[in-house]
Design a protein around this nucleic acid. Structure first.
Lengths: 184, 184
DNA sequence: TGAGTCATGTAATTCGTTACATGATTAA
DNA sequence: TTAATCATGTAACGAATTACATGACTCA
């Protein structure tokens, strides 16, 4: 494989869970990795085509009634699994973060502390719902995938999300308090 | 301004600290926001041109000796500052994260736990140096910008980095321990 | 009957990095 | 003298989102 196209690996990784259609992969990404790694449908469909071209996956058309577009179920090949495993052992690329809240706070001098507080309160709310989503996810994973060898790895990434979100919430509260003092 | 070109705002924000050249802005970004918002030189130079075109900044060529390319010092205009402040009060766009370590761990079932541990140890080292950088930055900011109205905002974003990095280090240690138990 | 979800795919556009070209200055 | 940093800029490429086109199925 020429370039390190990580969408390809994401798709292959998802196919190690079970054979899926492009739509199902998109949904799986949304419900699992999207908190630290998202892919849009506009990337997933071309990546699936590419996987078939490279013999990393096969495509089976679940043919439906006449003139309906067929649902396509993709399945990873042994070669695809080999490529995935090889990529997994390659050096991890540095993480990328783009946090607009922090950028706006960094330039906070150019506005009113009230504006900053307003953004922080919004951020706090978003993180509170995120935390709820994580907690629910944890429960459903633990019951639905009780005996899956995937489970431990999924819980590890989820634990990361929970811990980070807790810390962000703590920082948000403290920062709001700090800026409120500025106002007085 | 038509599109929400955030490089433009980053550049304008940096110019509220002091007039700078493109090179200096790139350096400032590297040493400050790059931990949560990075911009490359290939974006900064065109953005500066655009700022001048839109009258958000002016450019003064510090003309040097004959046939040397002049160093260009950019300065934000009142209009530029107005646009920046307006953007600061706009709704914050959701953060973007792409963490390849987490993605690889998520698909960890397809490889050896030893590989995962290896990546985690590397991640731990990187975060340890990052923490040192943050601590040094904190000290130098507090002395160099003692009386600057920017200081409080810079310390807020730095505090975010420090807290998050601490949490990541804690998670990394715990996860290594967990995976080592798997091996036994 | 209308909203929501299932389902695939392409095109346009934006975003962003990396590499390249070019050359001066400065400190070891 | 040579490596690092200062300095500007463009071109090529790659990564990613969004919008659009198309239409079936399901549930309230």
């Amino acid at each position: 494989m020429k370039k390190c196209n990580r969408t390809l690996y994401t798709v292959l990784g998802m196919l190690t869970i079970k054979p899926m259609s492009g739509y199902e992969i998109a949904k799986a990404v949304r419900n699992s990795t999207s908190f630290f790694w998202s892919e849009s449908e506009g990337q997933i469909y071309p990546a699936l085509k590419e996987c078939v071209k490279l013999s990393l996956a096969t495509c089976q058309e679940a043919s439906q009634t006449e003139n309906t577009r067929a649902k396509k179920i993709y399945k990873i090949t042994p070669q695809g699994k080999k490529e995935l495993t090889a990529w997994l052992s390659e050096k991890v690329q540095p993480a990328l973060v783009r946090n607009e809240l922090l950028l706006k706070l960094f330039f906070g001098k150019n506005t009113n502390p009230k504006e900053c507080i307003h953004h922080l309160i919004q951020y706090e709310k978003e993180n509170q719902s995120l935390l709820k989503i994580y907690k629910n996810l944890e429960l459903s994973l633990k019951s639905e995938y009780k005996d899956s060898p995937h489970l431990i790895y999924w819980l590890i990434t989820l634990d990361f999300g929970i811990k980070i979100t807790h810390t962000e919430l703590k920082w948000t509260r403290e920062t709001i308090t700090l800026l409120e003092k500025q106002l007085a």
